[in-house]
Design a protein around this nucleic acid. Structure first.
Lengths: 143, 143
DNA sequence: TGAAAGGTAACTTTTATTGTTACATAAGAT
DNA sequence: ATCTTATGTAACAATAAAAGTTACCTTTCA
């Protein structure tokens, strides 16, 4: 299964955007993450749908943040990207009538649900403005 | 990303094995999980390498548990299947020199590590014999 | 009206899992 | 002895999801 790197990539872009006081084009963003503009538009469109960014066409167009990074959490962006499964571990479903299969799947699902809940809770505690600040303080601390 | 359903499938097989007092063939196991014997051998071979099962060739051959289910945890089996990533979320690595990318990835990695630690801890607390017992008691409780 | 931007559909590439075929080897049954 | 029943394994095909690419559209402003 190929990894979904959209969250990492789009967070990278958003933090850059906050430091650039003008519309940023898909072309520029594509260079930030070494891909092409269509891939960028595809992901950014989801954030626009959730009102975290706006886009304008034509000359001097591009993308702008719709709110300060301090008002956006990792969870917000995660959700904006859609409700896809976060685990590579899947449950079998060949014989859903088998009580053993049901017991196995219930046990696995309970654990995965708990881990997911923890992860989303942590994501909800981190705002995007902390990503820059965290980095600077750890840089100063480590030399 | 396609899900890795080996853990769920092989747990299903192991619990069945405990209830069958003779060597179980790959053919029989393949029917349990609706696949073919080669797929079964591929996964079971990993469990044999980790000494959870044994296999014998020829007439009346097949697979046997090497220890009681009570002595095997979900974590044991998870580890026996190899150290593959459990998350579909990947980190970008286009520009590892960019401090913003590093800050984003560190934040994501910290959260994922924490969620993974919780998941593995829970897996370590569940022995395979509980899968049958859990199911029966929940069945009785729910009617 | 031409250049610069986003919008989007359709298709290809990539990557990991799963499935399949084929054949070798081992061990007990006849 | 040799046939049958098993596992062992290599090589290849099918499947599925993300990412990449191409092509063409519309919008906006100089």
């Amino acid at each position: 299964m190929r990894k979904d790197s959209r969250l990492s990539r789009v967070l990278h872009i958003l933090v850059h955007m906050a430091a650039i006081a003008r519309p940023v084009t898909s072309e520029e963003m594509a260079e930030m993450i070494s891909t092409n503009p269509v891939v960028v538009r595809r992901t950014m469109a989801l954030l626009r749908d959730a009102n975290y960014v706006t886009s304008t066409k034509g000359h001097h167009g591009g993308w702008l943040l719709a709110k300060p990074l301090a008002n956006i959490t990792l969870l917000d962006i995660h959700h904006a990207l859609g409700e896809s499964s976060i685990f590579t571990i899947g449950l079998s479903d060949e014989h859903s009538h088998c009580v053993i299969e049901q017991a196995v799947n219930t046990a696995l699902k309970d654990v995965m649900d708990e881990a997911k809940a923890l992860m989303l809770q942590r994501f909800g505690q981190i705002t995007l403005d902390q990503l820059g600040a965290d980095r600077i303080s750890s840089y100063l601390n480590k030399g």
